[in-house]
Design a binder for these strands. Structure first.
Length: 389
DNA sequence: GATCCACGGGAATACACGGATG
DNA sequence: CATCCGTGTATTCCCGTGGATC
């Protein structure tokens, strides 16, 4: 072994066994290209999209279900696959009776968490339909709409999925429908949300809504074990542990993955190669029940995330009131009034929970403090990883 | 010159409470 | 007793400004 080998070996010291081999693969924010154990649900989604395989535009749709059960993961995976089929075989599948030479429609997935204005939504759609770079500002919104129209006219059209249509920061659903009116009629849309169809005005314009159900316990265990197999060192977690988390999560895959992520990160930080019962306990208790998804938190604009990142490291004293927290958040390069406004806004959006201070005898309106309404340890790790580079 | 958007700042409003008023 | 008022905070609302693009 020569010196350079020795040096490389030193460099690769970090390549010694780690519990977590890939944070991405166990993160509740990332989706697998092949969802685990969701065959029947995938079939129902494919039923809806099936006309596209013969070059026809499927009806508009509404996919719904309670939070955390993998709606985004499933739709994302389906759209991704369909889009790649379109890309790989530009002509539609040949039937046994005749050759259909029409092209298949394109498939587009837009997250209304991330794209919170009509302009941004148009831009995201256009970005998936064309290769050229798209202006980020300086052009009127209608110009982007026109470009989408120009691109699609005379083609097989497109199916556009808008995820999280009923999110607090999302563009109003009615405005989205209005927006699709301006596009050629070879465009279909599929909205994904949490609201029951009766409460979702959009369903006036859709085919029968498609409900996604919470994961059965065994499926959720499979999901956890599958993620662990991909992202953790072999033997990091056993079946009983996965069952423990699955039971706690009651069909909510997002929360179960969050708990697993925290448990694994805790064990990793402690230098262990397997996850203990205490790690899992810590993981479960750090995931708030009825919290908002980490996807929603990670979709926030950079400065909001920076505020959150600093906020979750403040000690209880510094977070006693919104005013105190604002004053303590000096590491963020924003004015105090902006930080304060961010905190109130994020509370409005459900990202933070406002808790009234117990009545005291100070004059004036009693303050409230804000607490994260998401799995803070997961956000801390994902945010820090995203900052390295 | 137009357009979109994040910031920043401050006005307006809400709330709590003690004390005054009708 | 029900209201109103004044004071002190907290919270919400709104709009101007300026950077970055086109």
């Amino acid at each position: 072994m020569d010196l350079s080998d020795r040096i490389i070996r030193r460099q690769q010291r970090d390549e010694l066994p780690h519990l977590i081999e890939d944070y991405e693969l166990i993160a509740p924010t990332s989706h697998l290209e092949e969802p685990i154990g969701r065959g029947p649900t995938l079939e129902r989604l494919l039923d809806h999209f099936e006309p596209a395989l013969e070059g026809r535009i499927p009806p508009n749709g509404y996919i719904y279900g309670v939070r955390g059960i993998g709606k985004s993961a499933l739709v994302w995976a389906v759209i991704r696959q369909l889009a790649s089929v379109t890309a790989v075989s530009p002509t539609a599948i040949h039937t046994s009776t005749r050759v259909d030479t029409r092209r298949m429609p394109g498939f587009v997935y837009v997250d209304a968490h991330v794209h919170t204005s009509l302009f941004a939504i148009y831009r995201a759609i256009l970005d998936q339909l064309v290769d050229e770079p798209i202006p980020s500002q300086g052009v009127p919104t209608e110009a982007l709409a026109d470009r989408i129209g120009d691109r699609l006219r005379g083609t097989a059209g497109a199916v556009i999925c808008i995820d999280h249509v009923d999110a607090p920061r999302a563009v109003d659903a009615a405005a989205i429908v209005e927006m699709f009116r301006m596009l050629p009629n070879n465009v279909a849309w599929v909205a994904i949300g949490e609201l029951e169809p009766a409460a979702m005005p959009l369903t006036r314009y859709t085919d029968a809504p498609i409900r996604i159900d919470p994961l059965r316990q065994q499926v959720l265990i499979d999901v956890l074990m599958g993620r662990a197999n991909r992202g953790l060192t072999p033997g990091a977690i056993d079946h009983a542990a996965a069952r423990q988390v699955a039971t706690w999560a009651e069909g909510n895959a997002h929360d179960a993955l969050g708990a697993l992520f925290i448990a694994a990160d805790r064990a990793e930080t402690a230098g262990r190669l397997s996850i203990t019962h205490a790690d899992l306990q810590a993981g479960c208790s750090a995931v708030p029940t009825d919290g908002v998804s980490l996807g929603r938190v990670m979709a926030l604009p950079p400065n909001r995330q920076a505020v959150l990142r600093s906020l979750i490291d403040l000690d209880a004293g510094a977070r006693a009131s919104v005013t105190d927290a604002t004053a303590a958040l000096t590491m963020v390069d924003l004015s105090a009034s902006t930080i304060k406004r961010f905190l109130y806004e994020m509370a409005e959006w459900g990202i933070l929970t406002r808790i009234q201070s117990p009545v005291d005898h100070q004059p004036g309106r009693p303050p409230s403090r804000v607490e994260p309404n998401f799995a803070a340890p997961v956000f801390r790790r994902l945010y820090d990883l995203s900052q390295r580079q």
